[in-house]
Structures are given as structure tokens and as C-alpha cells.
Write a protein that binds this DNA or RNA. Structure first.
Lengths: 153, 153
DNA sequence: TATTGTTATACTCTATAACTATA
DNA sequence: TATAGTTATAGAGTATAACAATA
């Protein structure tokens, strides 16, 4: 039991393989933009603001499934670095837009992330990308629903 | 920009879809065993010990990709709950085995997790499960390697 | 009364470093 | 000198509650 690998009873579980793959792929994506001084979430937010100029923090929260309380320091940091501008929409919300520097960062991040995605897609069987993305969307949709009849009743 | 959904430039990224799916599927799996008072990692560890009686903490760490420092409190908790026994192998390592109560917990957790897995697999196109698992294993293998030529040199 | 953004806080997961005792 | 387990600690990510200002 010392020098050999363990038998892993969850090795064939979707949940287990999904998490293991997610951890490694996130690490690779983070490395791909680390030279820009950006983490994945702020980088994604720059891309979203670039594609949706004038959007609000709460729009980003809804799209990314984040809590407002966790968006605040990220936006504050991006503004402090001079990459986004905030203009009042009304007294309680701000329209977010990229500065020129922010646009340069967003484009550099997008290029690095797209190159990484191409590398990942290239490792899949041809035609496998569309099937994979469809499966992931479906799993995201139904993932968080415990099976009926297992612990109910 | 207020009442409509945002354009999401990373919606088709493997990394983004993988993470979103992983979060939801992990939440569903956690719910499926929450009635047992078990979190996902301790439950997985019970299943691993059941399948590998006599294994050591560091064997579990290697298999699950965890740090030894983070395994310690989990094993201590499982022992405190009376679900595992620790017997000295030599002066520095312990052979881990399930108690009868631990076996009952492991079997209940396995049943709940398998039911959840069947629900997930049932939502995929027929024959899609094998392709999905193969893709996830491949992505796990190559995920953490930033693309050559993007920021190098 | 609900929404936007903020602050404070807490819990989990993960990571490193240093320590012991043993091999 | 390397390994097994532990302890302390620090950093992310995520969660809730409460608040001020506004709609």
C-alpha cells in the first residue's frame, strides 16, 4: 500500500473529473495572463466592460454569478490602476468604460487567453470542442439539483 | 445597457464553461451528501480509504492532489467522529482503515454520489459520457501549460 | 419598498514554511 | 538527507448582514 497508486472509486465521476480539469485549466489560464499583472476575474471583467461599455457593476455580477460585495474591491483596483472610468448613471450606479490603457490591457489579455484556448481546443479530438461546450453548458444548467428520491422523504 | 443581458466574450471559452459547470456540479454533489453531515472532500477520502485499506495520509494527498498540511485536520475530524482508525505502520506514518460506522458512512455517501452521477450522465446525449470524461482527462493533463510563443521570449 | 454600491466579517480552500520524529 | 505528519499562517474566493444613498 506504499509504493503503488491507490484505487480511486471516484475516478470515473463527472464531478471529480470536472473539478480536476477545472483546477488545471484555470491554473494554465491564470499563467497565460500572469505577465500582465492580471488575475482571471479582473481580466474577464475588463473583457466584459470592453464588450459592454456603460454596463454597471451589478450587470457584471449577474453575468458572472458573483456577489456585489466581492465585485467592489475588484472594480476599485481596476479604477486605481487607470484601466476603467466610472461615470454616474444616476445617484446610485455608475457606467463602466475602459480607458485607453484599459483597452490595451483587455486586448493583451484577450490575445493571451485566446491563444491558450486554441492550445486547449487543439488537444481535443476534431469536432470535440462543440460537444464538450454543449455538455458543459448542460451540466452547468442541471448540476445543482440533488437527485430526487435519494434523501428526500 | 440596463435591462438586457451582457455580451460575454468568454462565453465560448473552455476555461470559462469548465469553471461554471464545475461550480454548479460541485454544489449539487455537496447537496447530495449534505444530509450525512459530510463535505465533498472528507466523503471522497472515506471512499478512498474504503477502497485502499491501510493507506497513509500522504497516499491520499498524492491521489487527490492535496497538500499534507490540509489533509491533517480532515483526517483528525474523521477520526474524532469515529469513522476511521489509525494504526502505526512505523514511527512516522499511520495505516488508515474505516471503522464499521465509517463503512456505513462511506456506503451512504457512495450511494448518494452515484445517484447524482446517474442524474448528470442522464442529461448528456447517449454515448456522450465517455467522450466527456476523455476530454476532461485530457484537459486536466495539458491544462496547466501556458501557450508557447505568447509571452515567452 | 427595492436597488446600487459599500463595508465588515466569516468560512472554505489552498499554499508555504518551520517544526518533530523517524527512516 | 529525505519522509510523514503536524502546526501556524497567509492568500484567494465566496458568503451574509447591515448600512447609506437613491429610485
Amino acid at each position: 500500500m506504499n509504493d503503488t497508486r491507490l484505487t480511486n472509486p471516484v475516478a470515473g465521476h463527472i464531478g471529480y473529473r470536472l473539478r480536476r480539469a477545472s483546477v488545471q485549466v484555470m491554473a494554465g489560464a491564470a499563467s497565460a495572463i500572469a505577465h500582465l499583472g492580471l488575475h482571471l476575474t479582473p481580466a474577464t471583467i475588463l473583457l466584459l466592460i470592453e464588450a459592454n461599455p456603460g454596463c454597471r457593476q451589478s450587470d457584471l455580477c449577474q453575468e458572472l454569478g458573483m456577489k456585489r460585495a466581492n465585485m467592489t474591491p475588484i472594480i476599485a483596483d481596476l479604477a486605481a490602476r487607470g484601466w476603467i472610468d466610472r461615470a454616474a448613471i444616476d445617484g446610485r450606479s455608475m457606467a463602466l468604460r475602459l480607458t485607453d490603457g484599459g483597452r490595451a490591457m483587455a486586448q493583451a489579455a484577450a490575445a493571451a487567453l485566446e491563444a491558450n484556448e486554441a492550445r486547449l481546443a487543439g488537444a481535443l479530438p476534431s469536432g470535440g470542442l462543440a460537444d464538450l461546450l454543449a455538455a458543459l453548458v448542460q451540466l452547468e444548467r442541471i448540476g445543482d439539483q440533488p437527485a430526487a428520491g435519494t434523501q428526500a422523504a
